[in-house]
Each structure stands twice: as C-alpha cells, then as structure tokens.
Nucleic acid binder design. Structure first.
Length: 388
DNA sequence: AAGTCGGGGGT
DNA sequence: ACCCCAGACTT
C-alpha cells in the first residue's frame, strides 16, 4: 500500500488532478507512480547536486526560520549576503528579540517586503518570552507566529525538525504541476491545497527535510519556469508532462495586473549647519517605519510644482523652505505601483521642524544609520552626483 | 478572492 | 515589456 500509489488512487483523493484530461476523449492508460522510487531518485539527486548554502550548514531552527522568511519571494543569490549580515548582528533568538526595530530594518534595507522583518522580530520576541527561546515544533504553535504562513510553517517543521509536513511554494507547484499534470491555476490561493495534498501522499517520512528541499532545488535548477532541463532531471521517468511533452505548457498561471502610476515630488532640504531633513514613514502600509526625505504625491504640472512644494513643506515643517533647484527625476517600480519622482534640493530653517515627531536633521555621515527604501537611496545618490 | 507589500534578475 | 522569485496579511 505504501510502496505503490496507483494513479487512480491519487485521482480519487484529488478531484482536480489531471482535470484537463477529463475532457479528452482519448484517455491514455493510467500511469502508476512508484512513490519509493520517486523519493529515492529525488533525494539522491539532491544529496549529490545541492548547492552549498549558508542556511544549510546546520539545522538550527532559528537560522532556518530567518532564511525562510528572507527567501519569501526573493532569490537565493539576493538573500545570501543579507543572511550573513543578519546572523552576525543577531546570532540567536535572544539577540533579535532584544534589538531595536530600527536596527532590524537597517539590516533588512534593500531586501524589500519590510513587514517580513517586523513580523519576524515580533514572532521571535514571542518565542523568547513564551517558549523560552525554543522555536515551537507543532504545526499549530508555529503557524500562529506572525509572518509564518503555510509554506514557512512546513519548511521549518520539515527542515529543522524532520516532521513530514508539506512546504508548498512556487517551485513545488511548478514541479508537481508537471510531474502530476495538474492544470489548476496556481495563481489562485485555493490551488495550493491541491499540491499540499499531493505532497502529503508523496513525502518521504524518513527524510522530509531533504524531500522538501529537493523539490525546491529541482525547481530552481532543473524544472525552471520557461526552459526546464528535462534531460537532466532525476525524476523525468516519473513526470507526466515530460511523458506527454507538455512541460512548456505547465504550470497554468493567470497574469497579474499592471501597476498604477503615481507621480511624486521629493526634496533634499538642508539647514544652515548642512544637516539633512529626514522623517520616519508611518507604521502601517507601504515601506512602513522606514525613513524618507520630504515628499508629496503630486499631479501638478512641472512649472507649478516647485511653488506648491515650498508651500506645503513650509507649512508642514513650520519653517522657511527654499527650493533652489530641480535635480531631475527618477522612476521606481514596485510590484503593484510605479513611482515617478521629481527631485528638488533646497534649504530649510531647523527651528521648528526638529520638534516634530519622527523628523530629524542628520549629517551626511549619520545618514547611513537609517534604513531608506531603495528609491530614496537612488534619490540621494543623484543629489550627491549633482552637487559635484 | 482580490489587493497590498520590494526589489532584482532573467528572457 | 513581462515574468518570476523557498509568500503572508488585510480587506
């Protein structure tokens, strides 16, 4: 019963399995999937071909946790340097639990999706206080932690604790959509459950860690989105899509919508001591709790904009504001919107502005102690280039 | 279920 | 341009 899982049995347990073929008049003989052989082929390949990654050096649940949060929607090569720096700053649960949020955000600067960092620290605090610093090892407890969703819960449980839970990410859905010929739209939230059910049937109970990691490694190295290297695939004998030649049609994924365009204006304002005005963003929403330069959303025409900005800034910061010059403009693309920013430089009195909450005057040397979103980093670089 | 939330790299 | 990436949370 454990050794072979008849294809028809899978079909019974998953109504959407091979749903496309239900309508085909010419149904081919049902294949069987040799589960043990599949596990062996997959895991041996992984043990031989896996990349050396910093979070694979040991299975410390805290390190696995940090890596999994960083890897959400983020490529391995991007994460590696962040992972090293983060663990140097916060080697253990206690260190992250007791850190200043500003320092955590600074360590996350440039990585994006900053709520990951704030949720991670919040959850680590809970682990430190409620679980004595030990990352919990039950699905219920770990899933209740802030920022730990179905994927991350399964990843930590399987990789750090060897518990056979599915960890279904984009890789796993792509890989199994091909192996099992699943034609559900993987862009729909409900589809993830189809793949979780599949993984529960197929996962190795001897080595859930390598099984789950192998699926993701396979998706990253072999079973890639546009041009899968099927001839190098260790499980192509088990793959329905390879058998049918449909690997380029799978997975099914509906397109995402276009970004909205937002016009902005922002300024580098300097006081008479040569210090620059910065402010902390609100604690909710886009780029929450990061720092920025004074800015407004603006749909005003370019000629009127400068006067409007001087007015708005002067009244908001209660000081005399002078915009000397326009430095240029820059575009920054987010996943759901596009900022087009007109950039100015000028001066401001620091009498009242420094009394405002979340507003500071800092020297150029102090600037890099604060976490800035990339668009404002770009903006400051333009300012420095223009000044020379 | 749809929208929000970053940034970079590949094609 | 458009796609994708070791997704989660809010509405």
């Amino acid at each position: 019963m454990n050794t072979y899982l008849l294809y028809s049995q899978i079909y019974v347990s998953l109504t959407s399995w091979r749903g496309k073929n239900l309508d085909k008049q010419d149904v081919q003989p049902l294949e069987t999937i040799d589960i043990e052989q599949f596990q062996t082929d997959l895991i041996s390949w992984f043990q031989k071909e896996q990349r050396e990654l910093p979070w694979r050096k040991d299975k410390d649940p805290y390190k696995v946790w940090v890596s999994e949060i960083m890897l959400q929607q983020t490529r391995v090569d991007t994460v590696i340097p962040y992972f090293h720096r983060f663990l140097e700053l916060f080697p253990e649960v206690k260190d992250l639990a007791q850190a200043e949020e500003d320092q955590v955000l600074k360590a996350w600067e440039g990585l994006g999706y900053y709520s990951r960092a704030r949720n991670l620290q919040s959850a680590v605090k809970e682990v430190y206080e409620k679980y004595g610093g030990i990352v919990p090892n039950t699905p219920k407890e770990i899933s209740s932690l802030k920022g730990v969703g179905p994927y991350t819960a399964g990843a930590i449980l399987s990789i750090a604790y060897g518990i056979p839970e599915p960890a279904v990410d984009g890789n796993v859905m792509r890989v199994f959509s091909r192996i099992l010929s699943i034609w559900d739209d993987i862009a729909k939230p409900s589809t993830r459950k189809v793949f979780e059910t599949a993984v529960r049937e197929l996962i190795s109970h001897d080595n859930p860690s390598d099984f789950n990691q192998a699926l993701m490694e396979l998706g990253a190295l072999i079973c890639t989105p546009t041009s899968p290297s099927c001839l190098l695939c260790p499980v192509r004998d088990h793959c329905a899509a390879f058998h049918e030649g449909t690997q380029h049609e799978l997975p099914i994924k509906t397109k995402n919508k276009k970004q909205k365009h937002v016009k902005m204006a922002a300024a580098i304002l300097v006081n008479d001591k040569g210090e620059i005005l910065i402010q902390k963003r609100p604690s909710k929403g886009l780029l929450a709790n990061l720092w920025e330069f004074p800015n407004i959303e603006s749909t005003i025409s370019y000629v009127d904009e400068k006067a409007l900005l001087e007015d708005r800034f002067a009244s908001h910061y209660s000081g005399n504001v002078h915009l000397n010059r326009s430095i240029g403009q820059l575009e920054h693309v987010f996943s759901h919107l596009i900022w087009n920013i007109n950039i100015y430089a000028g001066t401001i009195d620091d009498v009242s502005a420094s009394e405002l909450q979340n507003v500071k005057f800092v020297s150029i040397e102090e600037l890099d102690q604060y976490a800035f979103p990339v668009p404002y980093q770009k903006m400051f670089r333009m300012y420095q280039l223009e000044k020379e």
